[in-house]
């Protein structure tokens, strides 16, 4: 009974991503979309927290939002999956519910 979480805020602007990771359970997926994709980059001040809190969950990022913001996929934290909109739909379909962290 897993949940797909979406986060659309930069973790440098709000605590939404950290709050989401603090409530996500093992087996859940956290998908970063829109400005949320900034949370998926490595070598940031929050990268360690992301890796530490994200341990039991799958981290994913919406590739079109990444590309729009000029973030190369090579700069992503290791283990972060990229999906397109079709992949986003697939994630929503394969999880039991969606929680959109606004």
């Amino acid at each position: 009974m897993a949940t797909l979480h979406t986060v659309n805020k930069s973790p440098f602007a709000t605590q939404t991503l950290l709050s989401c990771l603090g409530h996500a359970k093992a087996g859940d997926t956290v998908l970063m979309i829109e400005d949320g994709v900034y949370g998926a980059a490595s070598n940031t001040g929050l990268a360690d927290a992301m890796v530490g809190m994200g341990g039991a969950v799958t981290l994913a990022v919406l590739a079109p939002d990444l590309k729009a913001r000029g973030i190369d996929e090579g700069r992503l934290l290791s283990g972060v999956k990229t999906v397109d909109y079709a992949g986003f739909v697939e994630l929503a379909a394969t999880h039991d519910r969606t929680q959109n962290w606004l």
Binding site: T3, G22, H23, K25, D28, R97, T98, Q99, N100, L102
Partner: peptide, 18 residues
């Protein structure tokens, strides 16, 4: 607690966020 809140959230059919 936060842990209990996570349990409440994962026990739902529909989650509306505001």
């Amino acid at each position: 607690s936060r842990t209990e809140m996570a349990d409440v959230m994962s026990d739902q059919d529909v989650i509306l966020s505001f």
